[in-house]
Design a protein around this nucleic acid. Structure first.
Lengths: 185, 185
DNA sequence: GACTATAGAGAACGATCGTTCTCAATGCAA
DNA sequence: TTGCATTGAGAACGATCGTTCTCTATAGTC
């Protein structure tokens, strides 16, 4: 029961935080959306900061599983690198896309909450390691990893602000050029 | 006098908003930092949203003049493109660097305030046009502009979250590769 | 010097928010 | 059934915030 409450709360909070911005969402709104009592909410998450960290944790899992599903579907190591941008394209096409939740949380609360800042840093470092590993398995130089990750980063904010999906395709095209220039056929 | 008040308020607010996140800064804090009465503050900016938009406007000017100062110092059209990343490197080295103020504002308030969202969009569109113009003058293909701008975008968020300057150099290296691949010697 | 307009200092207001508390209802153990 | 622990519903609390108002002092005008 408690576990069911947790997931319902986290899912509702994630949706609200992401759509409106964390500071614009009160705990009352989370309670209403989750269909849970305020007492149950605070039983699971003793403070809003705890809830925020949990939401980011769930978002990290969604990101990680979403990216690797797309990457795992491709066999060729070089093409795996490009699959990341295909995942972005799918994501950007979601009507509710509003940028990277981690970047948004960092900009809003990174300075005020060390826990939030650290959670965001961990997420980005994890993704960087993931891309680095793909690059290595494809036989690319170590310098390629940060460049490819940065393109993904830039695509997310560009797509969020411009409101268009193009950024994913521009990023993918740039990645193809970088990969080819790195000597990966 | 009123003009002097305006600039003092905007400068103080910019520093606070950027360092702490906009929602974490009350109008009282702005008043204290600006050394101005609350009445004078509201005389110049009838609402906090007005102040936020003014702060973003000033930030846009700082960004525009900073980038073009760096770009104008270079003669060769191809090298002008890379000067953008040198500007980023300088900026990231600032101890108070905390990412792109526009991205931060968008993530925090873009959904709640159409005026903020539009101001951020205008800023990014302006920068994109600027890069596109540099690319065109260098004889590069139109597809290069979005790619270079996206690298700059990604570098800013990466540097902000990782807390390191490297991102500017990675972005610059990637830009060199993209520029070379586009046939610009 | 008297009058008026302006502005500073900060109290005050109303709303919101994170968090806790009250109270009644429920479910379970004996 | 009685007693007890748990829970839901939501009122209440204390703090903060954006904004306005009061009151006083000052400066300029006649």
């Amino acid at each position: 029961m408690s576990e069911e409450n947790r997931t319902r709360i986290v899912e509702a909070a994630d949706e609200l935080f992401y759509a409106r911005g964390i500071g614009q969402v009160g705990m009352d709104a989370v309670r209403d959306a989750a269909g849970v009592s305020l007492r149950a909410l605070y039983n699971e998450f003793p403070s809003k900061e705890d809830l925020i960290v949990a939401v980011l944790g769930k978002r990290h899992e969604m990101w990680t599983s979403g990216v690797s599903r797309k990457v795992d579907a491709i066999a060729e190591p070089r093409a795996k690198l490009l699959a990341v941008y295909d995942y972005l394209a799918d994501w950007f096409d979601d009507g509710d896309f509003r940028g990277c939740g981690f970047i948004n949380a960092f900009g809003e609360l990174g300075a005020a909450s060390p826990r939030v800042a650290e959670t965001v840093q961990d997420h980005k470092a994890d993704f960087q390691r993931y891309v680095d590993a793909l690059v290595e398995r494809a036989g690319g130089p170590a310098s390629l990893g940060p460049q490819l990750a940065m393109l993904a980063e830039g695509a997310q904010t560009t797509a969020a602000i411009s409101g268009t999906t193009e950024a994913a395709h521009h990023a993918r095209a740039a990645a193809e050029t970088l990969i080819a220039a790195a000597g990966l056929a």
